[in-house]
């Protein structure tokens, strides 16, 4: 059933005006199976709005949105604020969409590295833990297409790289398409196949190396990105509880090592 490179989702010539302000203008975006597409752009560039349009949460004024018939989407929203007055464990949160078996639940939490949190109240989890839990909920959908809106938000730099590697592994295992929103091209470079630089319209797109030297990109982000010189000399990992874990070498092309 799974054809590699099949088109999973696409927007064509999408235009959207919110409160008299043109938020999206002639935006074409496509995600295929097996690829990781990263959407970057400054604040207010319409990244999250484009994601909402693609998810069908907002209707464009003009243009069309195509989703492959029957495509299963796992969505990781940008922010999750759960009022402490609602007693909710991680287990309950994960099964809110639909029930699932115990082994599957534990398997998915294991994969994102948050197995110990299953019975914890969700309000007690840290920023990094919460991102992993959100990712787990998206994975429980058995997605063909993962849509991740700022998946590393509120996570420290080391944790960000770990999360990006995890996302890359997930793509390999599920052979799904991934669309993610990010602020920083240089952190995602190694784990991205294609970058789309958005500032209400698509400024430029292509391979991350090409985009990073594209005049349109440099005009938006400047020529001296602060994190470009990042070299990572960690010889071990920390899991999300801060415990030291020996380095693994199986990750594909983690930046800053070797």
């Amino acid at each position: 059933m799974k054809k590699s490179n099949e088109l999973l989702a696409e927007t064509r010539d999408v235009q959207l005006t919110l409160r008299g302000r043109r938020v999206l203008d002639q935006v074409d975006l496509a995600v295929h199976r097996g690829e990781i597409v990263t959407l970057i752009g400054p604040n207010g560039a319409g990244k999250s709005t484009l994601v909402r349009v693609l998810l069908g949460l907002m209707k464009p004024d003009h243009g069309s949105v195509y989703l492959r018939p029957g495509v299963r989407i796992g969505y990781m929203p940008q922010r999750l604020l759960i009022d402490p007055v609602l007693p909710l464990t991680v287990r309950r949160f994960l099964t809110l969409g639909r029930p699932c078996s115990e082994t599957r639940l534990q398997g998915v939490l294991q994969e994102v590295g948050a197995a110990a949190l299953l019975e914890a109240p969700i309000q007690n989890t840290s920023g990094g833990e919460l991102q992993r839990i959100l990712l787990a909920r998206a994975l429980l959908r058995d997605p063909d297409l993962l849509i991740l809106d700022e998946p590393v938000q509120g996570v420290d730099i080391t944790g960000q790289l770990d999360l990006y590697r995890l996302i890359s592994r997930i793509r390999d295992r599920l052979d799904c398409g991934i669309l993610m929103v990010s602020h920083d091209l240089h952190l995602v470079m190694a784990t991205t196949d294609r970058v789309v630089c958005l500032n209400r319209h698509v400024c430029c797109s292509g391979h991350p190396q090409d985009v990073s030297s594209d005049p349109a990109y440099l005009a938006l982000f400047g020529a001296s990105p602060g994190l470009a010189l990042y070299t990572h000399r960690h010889n071990h990992h920390h899991d999300i509880h801060g415990h030291v874990v020996p380095a693994e070498e199986q990750e594909r092309g983690g930046p800053g090592r070797g």
């Binding site: 909402r52 998810l55 969505y75 929203p77 759960i82 609602l86 949160f93 969409g97 639909r98 959908r141």
Partner: peptide, 19 residues
């Protein structure tokens, strides 16, 4: 109960999941 709780926790997530 179920759909209302899912909506209370996160509206967009619930809608994407078909609630």
């Amino acid at each position: 109960w179920r759909p209302l709780l899912a909506d209370t926790v996160h509206e967009e997530l619930a809608r994407v999941e078909g609630v």
